[in-house]
Simulated scan of single mutants.
Amino acid sequence: MQKLIFLFCLFDMSCSNRMGSHSLWMMGTYIRGKTPFPEFMAYVMLDDIEFGYYDSNEQTMVYKDIHKDSGRVIDAEDDYTEFFQQLYGRIHLRASKIKHYFNHTNGIDIFQRATGCELLNNDRPGPMFTKDAYNGESVVIDHYDADHDALRIEWRWPDIEDKPWTQRMNFPLHYRMKYHPHCIKYLRKHLVKERNRVLKKVKPRVRLLQKTLPLDSGGAKVTCLATSFYPRHINLTLLRDGQSVSDHQITGGELLPNGDETYQMRKSLEVSAEELQHHHYTCTAEHLSLDNKLEISLEREWDSGTTIILSSVTAVAVFVCLVGATCGIIIWRCGCHWSP
């Protein structure tokens, strides 16, 4: 379970591209050993929206929200079945080499690969990434810089580097001529198809709240809360007398899904009664849906209804992550060798 949950840490990385930019990712997980899951599973995601799934049992691409009797025709160019079949073979081969290196004969082992690229906020092609991981540990990372036509390959386990493969392959040329342009092409194409979902802007609901702590502490918790916003990128800042509170004093700050393709974030600070009396606390939010920075002052009453709702949402989010993690889906900000 620990190996699988690690995948969601990687997913958060994959979704953290710069504000205003967009990304296309293909991610696959190969599981060696007896489990109730398919040996190989993969996803296609546009930003944080999943629109395609493949596994080794079905051996065909399944498109989310598209039913066989819907009448919608999938372009042959958009059918990633062949790509995932090839990726399945490559991952199987790499996993076998690593298994042999570590002399693993029993148990369950997981090999993961993700590939993707970014389109920056001025429609300029951004970088492309690849990451391979084995049992939750990074094996190799490729970073292709399109601006300088430069490829950096970082082997985390240099003593098992596949030198014959890397020596016969001109990786910078393949990234420049094939992998990167193909990825950017499909990214732009899917942005047009899914623009109503991906390019929507939903304004955050922002509140600054105060909750009294137990009597023995004599203090309070000040919480800056933003919820129901999209896209996921938001700058949420808690301030004391107009100055940002240091990060090491803040708790929270994690981005959580609401289940309706919007997100929430909260940042909290515990203060003494004296601090609360002598300092002025405010909260600011910057988001693509807002024309200007939003500044909120402290409310004296804690909204218990909001607390209950958010606790439920958080519990659901954690449950979804654990279920997804159990399925062994990787997602992390990295890109793989693109060969549609």
Rank of each mutant, 00 (worst) to 15 (best):
R300A: 13
F11D: 09
E77M: 09
Q2H: 14
A317P: 08
I110W: 04
M1F: 09
D303P: 12
I74Y: 07
V192R: 13
K200P: 09
K203R: 15
H233R: 07
Y53V: 05
Q167C: 00
Y263D: 05
S339E: 11
S138F: 07
T105N: 13
T326P: 01
E301P: 03
E286R: 11
M27V: 04
L290P: 07
I329S: 00
F84V: 02
L236G: 12
D241A: 06
F84I: 12
R300F: 04
N235V: 14
M19W: 09
L294R: 07
F229M: 09
G28M: 08
G218L: 07
P181S: 05
L269H: 03
D48E: 14
R240H: 09
C15N: 11
V313L: 15
H22P: 01
N292G: 02
V139A: 01
I296H: 02
K200T: 13
A273L: 00
N106A: 06
V318I: 13
R124D: 01
R197I: 10
W157L: 10
C283P: 03
G219D: 05
D12R: 13
P125R: 06
K131S: 11
V44T: 13
E274L: 04
S23L: 03
V73R: 13
D65P: 01
I91Y: 14
A76I: 02
F102P: 01
G107Q: 08
T284H: 03
N121M: 01
Y230L: 03
R113K: 04
P172V: 04
L310N: 13
C334Y: 10
D216P: 01
I296R: 06
I5V: 10
K131N: 14
I49Y: 15
L256I: 14
E275D: 14
S268A: 15
H92F: 10
F229A: 07
S21I: 02
Q112H: 00
Y54C: 03
D55G: 07
T326W: 13
P172D: 05
S21L: 04
A114H: 11
Y88F: 15
W25Y: 00
A114C: 15
G107W: 07
P257D: 06
L119F: 01
V323W: 09
M27A: 12
I49E: 13
P125S: 03
S244I: 12
H22W: 02
R195D: 06
M45L: 11
T115I: 02
S339P: 00
W332A: 08
W25E: 05
G52P: 06
M169T: 12
I74S: 03
Q277A: 12
I5W: 12
P181F: 08
E154T: 09
L209T: 06
K163P: 03
G126S: 04
S56I: 08
Q86Y: 09
Y186W: 07
K293Y: 06
D12N: 11
V316H: 10
F51V: 03
K203C: 05
